[in-house]
Amino acid sequence: MRTGNSGGQRAAAATTEGALGAVALGLALLPGVAFAERVPVATLAHGCIACHGAATTDRDPSIPPLAGHDADVLLQLLRGYAEEDPAESTSMHRLTRGYSDQELAELARHFAEQEQ
């Protein structure tokens, strides 16, 4: 069955927040743990570009390119999709519910830093 688990993920994200610096430096969090506990933003962004594209185009697509937007504006949009299902939303609510708030923030920052 499909259930959103963003709440649980958010809690999990909070507990590992202190260790994020270590991960970014490429250090494992705990010896013997099979997976680093955080999804790299590169992996997350790879998912987005499947629809939104890796680069801006001269077309005017119905799925907007993500690069170069203001991080705060983007984050507000993403949070909006995650929290409720706006009438005009198609896939976004279904997908964003699965991210932690931390992950949404990282994605917003990641795309904001890319050149338009």
Partner: peptide
């Protein structure tokens, strides 16, 4: 290749 643990995965489908 770097001898490290694999990063946590996340996949999408549409």
């Amino acid at each position: 290749l770097a001898g490290r643990e694999p990063p946590e995965p996340a996949w999408l489908n549409t």
